[in-house]
Design a protein around this nucleic acid. Structure first.
Lengths: 232, 232
DNA sequence: CTCGGTTTGTTCTCACGTTCACAAACTCCT
DNA sequence: AGGAGTTTGTGAACGTGAGAACAAACCGAG
């Protein structure tokens, strides 16, 4: 089967590359706002904090959008990457769990400017349903189904305490959400076909702590040995 | 073997493994609280959301802490991993930028329970210096040097707007901080020997959006093709 | 003590990701 | 038009990580 594997953008882009495309997109936006019309792979790589060879290889998965001897047209490349990622128009997003973190997420201005639109804030605690956060009403968690249907929501954000996260995820999946960003410090079980990405403060800090304790003990690091930086 | 492999913990643990150790640590804490005394690699792998072969391989970098035919002692393994990560005692942490996100971070209870202690909250805006957040005074950013010296702070958290982040990072490095967790949506330049980890909401959402748009277009995915889940 | 059942630790193989290095392709100057 | 100088796109080498598979080690029963 798969007689016609082409179907538009049929190339499969490596996961590591996908994770960097948003960084390039942001760097290009910065260059654009600074008035730059054209940039070399070296320029863009510096702005994005990566190696220029890696940048070129990453971009090569999208197609040939540069000009040899010249470089890349900033606006053009920016559009192409945005299109590839799929953020040329806005994605509706729901946030569940309007505690401290939920507040911060709801107020985050980067949502709108980067291809996302918060269509609803949900919380199971009735005492929160009075509030408005960032100009949006906080609604009961049970409204999830209706909201997902109404706005065709595909992406859900979980910012509840850990013990509630799995139930929220289950409800999201049942409602038809297939991409979840989880801030709760717990492992989520989801059916095949659902993507989960997790953001976990404690884990990030512990990774830093590991390297920090290594620095501390071998504190006369042999001068010949270079250390790597900015782990992603 | 391992006839005293020299300087204590001299093995170098792969970065991918280091990133998973905190997950195992949390899973073990969960098992411990549930009253489990012993677990197999299969049990722990399930709790941590990974493959059991990968788990065993990861643990093998730390040493041989299991018993063949039996499994792992939960408490013992938990301590060994905590020791390896370096979170058997608390790390002092400063948070710079007490906006919405800074508030959420300061109030995050997982800090204390997972090996970290917030010793100071800093903000450049004088109007915030009146407040207390999570029982801690918000102090002027210029106090950074004194605080780092006084508490021997090694880890800094940046939750400022993007435009301020690089200056904050520079000041942190100048004050002696060598590990930075950056929540600001910008690429930080730091000297060699300083570790930076970044947490970026927009990037995570855009990665989800990429996969979501792929799901949307090929929306009759051939049944033979399995999709992978829970990307980390 | 021996044997069967269980589970770890490790080896081997393959896939993925990074980096180098260079040919191809473009611009600009003479 | 031709040649010098740039910069992209990519093939190939290298390093790291994942997973299967299995020998080594342990427990308990008889």
């Amino acid at each position: 089967m798969t007689a016609r594997t082409s179907a538009e953008t049929a190339r499969d882009i490596p996961e590591a590359t996908v994770a960097r495309l948003p960084v390039y997109l942001r760097a290009l936006t910065g260059l654009s706002e600074a008035g730059t019309r054209t940039c070399s792979s070296e320029d863009l790589a510096t702005a994005a904090g990566v190696n220029s060879a890696k940048l070129r290889k990453d971009l090569s998965y999208l197609g040939s959008y540069g000009t040899r001897g010249v470089g890349y047209d900033v606006e053009y490349l920016r559009y192409q990457i945005a299109r590839e990622i799929g953020v040329t128009q806005d994605w509706p997003v729901v946030i569940v769990g309007i505690g401290n973190l939920g507040h911060a997420l709801a107020n985050f201005s980067g949502f709108r400017s980067r291809g996302f639109r918060v269509v609803a804030l949900l919380d199971a605690d009735p005492s929160r349903h009075a509030e408005q956060v960032a100009g949006i009403d906080v609604r009961p968690f049970d409204d999830l189904d209706a909201i997902v249907r109404e706005h065709a929501v595909a992406i859900g954000v979980i910012s509840t305490p850990a013990h509630a996260a799995q139930d929220v995820a289950d409800a999201m999946v049942a409602a038809g959400i297939r991409s979840i960003l989880n801030f709760a410090p717990t492992v989520l079980a989801v059916p095949e076909g659902v993507d989960v990405r997790k953001v976990d403060l404690s884990i990030e800090l512990q990774i830093l702590a590991y390297h920090e304790s290594r620095k501390a003990l071998g504190d006369q690091p042999e001068p010949g040995r270079q250390e790597q930086e900015v782990r992603s």
